[in-house]
């Protein structure tokens, strides 16, 4: 029962947390003046008229960072149950974790040596 209650609380919290910031935004809609015109609504670029499409092609480095992050994220997630049970593990458990982290480190060294971590 306790577990259900905890997560029911989180569920309700998700609902309430969305309502709270919505209220002032809706309130501002009634209080604030609305006199739009073309110049006011134009894209803000320090007074210079905008040229070309906003949705330009981005460089591949962002994607590589994303990929590296993804791999690290998944590996660290695997380590969380290990860390959680660590007090009850023997030296074998430590060695298993060591090997796991060694592979993780290996990936980092590879990315480093291949200059995949450089912001080009």
């Amino acid at each position: 029962m306790a577990l259900v209650n905890e997560w029911a609380y989180i569920g309700l919290f998700f609902a309430v947390a969305w309502i709270f910031p919505l209220l002032p935004i809706i309130g501002a809609r009634f209080l604030a003046p609305a006199k739009p015109n073309v110049i006011k609504q134009s894209t803000y670029e320090c007074g210079v008229e905008t040229v070309g499409d906003t949705w330009v092609q981005f460089k591949v480095q962002y994607y590589i960072y994303g990929l590296i992050f993804l791999v690290f994220d998944v590996e660290i997630i695997f380590l969380f149950p290990w860390a959680l049970a660590y007090n009850q593990l023997d030296f074998f458990g430590f060695a298993a974790g060591l090997l796991f982290i060694f592979f993780l480190f290996d990936a980092l060294v590879y990315a480093w040596r291949k200059d995949a971590l450089e912001w080009l």
Binding site: I64, V71, E75, F103, Y110, A111
Partner: peptide, 13 residues
């Protein structure tokens, strides 16, 4: 799994 993820990252790079 760890080895696989390392391989995946190397492949991705």
């Amino acid at each position: 799994a760890s080895l696989l993820l390392t391989a995946a990252m190397i492949g991705a790079i």
